[in-house]
Design a binder for these strands. Structure first.
Length: 469
RNA sequence: GUCCCCUUCGUCUAGCCCGGCCCAGGACACCGCCCUUUCACGGCGGCGACACCGGUUCAAAUCCGGUAGGGGACGCCA
């Protein structure tokens, strides 16, 4: 185990979204690569908005993506005493002070400052005040430095410097006694001996404040790496407006976890011209050096392409088990209904499905013989020709033994040359009889997957229906 | 408004640190052709970008300055 200690610290106020998932992935990847420790910490200091369902949803999302953690999950809500202790320490040392300003007052001042074109920062009204007696409600503010600058070397963005005068005295403890985010992260990251903080871009502005807190408390300052955010197609922060943002929603849309992970790792990071990364390659090749500095737009199209790739190259048995819930959604239960082996079905559909949803839709005909036929497809042939083709095939299927796709293909070719038909003249009518439509896997695949008896039954059925037209 | 960050094809990006190999490479999408028993897969080809303006230099996507545009932060949220 190396000394590298990383953490992913989501707040449980919703599901795991793709942005968070990518941050988690980057942390996880680096931990694996450097043989470090990956810690999961739930930032639930906001008791109002944190929920248990969100915690479960986040854990579920991480597990689905295969991001396991070495320590945790830790909950900040379990550390309130520790934070309290440090608040008091800072108070005693004069590095923090009580502020008696009311929310309304503060809001008024902020609005005024904004309207006058000034920076809406706290004016330090209570900075010099001695502690007030009685039970006047108060918050505790960190006494920030007024002069100089605070800077750090971001591993992704390079050196970033903030003038100290830009930062106001932030609240570290609310009037109800609970600590706030910026204070807790610093304490926890220090307590957990985090050596590198990889997090979203939106935290850049918090970093100098946190650094000041580390220093005030005498803690070593970790290294930072801020990952640019993920945008929607209109280049604004990705949100539900742009479509699904929840990791689990992607599972439900039929995406494979390896596809999402592969997509996410390439969003903002690259390794030359490589596009496809196995888990191992990702771990081996990932590095912060090649993480870009600019935000990136989420592209469903590319995700779809990757998913298609993983479906195409995936193990049929595994895909079959993943497909079952999607079949169930379509009212198909392979145990009860007529069903060819699912892996066989999957094999015929792997090259033509981008998602498990598409695959499930395309698989329906295997379980249910068509009740209606695609009229447009059918109308391309004369009724007489259709009946001829069906009769011809029924004859052969009843007498020949055909166990392989090669044998079926051969039969079709023989029929063509014997009757003087072109391949499409035989293939299409047959496809319609077997699947109901014009879009389906190869005829030979359908017949061998369906089995001769079922194929025969469907062709006879089609012949009956067509002759009744 | 103030501060911080960002800017290569429509999108993800390579190249930028260490100027010439870049009249900029790959991928997704799109278009065309080929393959073909449908739909797909696949193969081949095409379209398409260094935000802008100056400077340095024999030479700039690469270095410097400025402008414009975009994003983020500015909360008793995280």
């Amino acid at each position: 185990m190396s000394n590298l200690r990383l953490r992913f610290a989501p707040s449980p106020t919703g599901y795991l979204h793709v942005g968070g998932a990518r941050t988690a992935l980057f942390n996880w990847l680096l931990a694996k690569k450097e043989n470090g420790t990956f810690i999961l910490r739930i930032e639930d200091t906001d008791l109002e908005r944190s929920t248990e369902e969100s915690v479960d949803a986040i854990l579920e999302g991480m597990k689905w993506l295969g991001l396991d953690w070495d320590e945790g999950p830790y909950f900040q809500s379990a550390n309130f005493e520790l934070y309290r202790k440090y608040v008091n320490q800072l108070l005693d040392e004069g590095k923090a002070y009580r502020c008696y300003c009311t929310t309304e007052e503060l809001e008024r001042k902020r609005a005024l400052a904004m309207s006058e074109g000034r920076k809406p920062k706290y004016d330090g009204a209570c900075r010099g005040l001695p502690p007030q007696g009685g039970d006047l409600p108060y918050v505790v503010r960190f006494r920030g430095e007024e002069e100089g600058a605070t800077s750090f070397d971001d591993l992704i963005k390079g050196k970033i410097t903030f003038p100290n005068e830009e930062m106001d005295d932030l609240i570290i403890c609310r009037s109800d006694g609970t600590p706030t985010y910026n204070f807790c992260v610093a304490i926890d990251d220090a307590a957990m001996k985090i050596t590198l903080v990889i997090r979203g871009d939106d935290h850049v502005n918090n970093t100098p404040r946190q650094i000041q807190i580390y220093k005030a408390l005498g803690f070593p300052v970790p290294a930072f790496a801020h990952v640019p955010m993920i945008l929607g197609s209109d280049k604004t922060r990705l949100s539900k407006r742009h479509g699904a943002t929840s990791v689990m929603a992607y599972r439900d849309m039929g995406f494979l976890p390896e596809a999402l992970a592969n997509y996410l790792v390439r969003l903002g990071w690259s390794h030359g011209d490589d596009e496809i990364f196995s888990r191992e390659e990702m771990i081996r090749k990932f590095d912060l050096k090649n993480v870009g500095r600019s935000p990136s737009v989420f592209s469903m199209e590319k995700l779809l392409w990757l998913n298609a790739h993983y479906i195409k190259t995936g193990d049929a048995e595994r895909l079959a088990s993943l497909l079952i819930p999607f079949l169930a959604e379509r009212g198909i239960s392979p145990d009860k209904d007529f069903s060819p082996p699912i892996p066989d079905i999957v094999r015929t559909l792997q090259e033509r499905s981008r998602t498990l949803v598409e695959m499930a839709d395309a698989a329906i005909f295997y379980f249910k013989a068509p009740e209606i036929y695609d009229e447009e497809a059918l109308s391309k042939f004369e009724k007489k020709h259709l009946l001829n083709v069906y009769s011809e095939l029924i004859g052969h299927l009843e007498s020949d033994s055909l166990f392989t796709t090669v044998a079926v293909d051969l039969l079709l070719k023989e029929i063509c040359s014997a009757k003087g038909w072109k391949m499409p003249q035989v293939g299409q009518p047959l496809r319609i009889a077997l699947s109901g439509g014009a879009h389906a896997p190869a005829i030979a695949d359908i017949i061998t997957t369906l089995g001769i008896p079922e194929s025969l039954r469907r062709i006879k059925l089609a012949k009956e229906k067509v002759s009744g037209l």
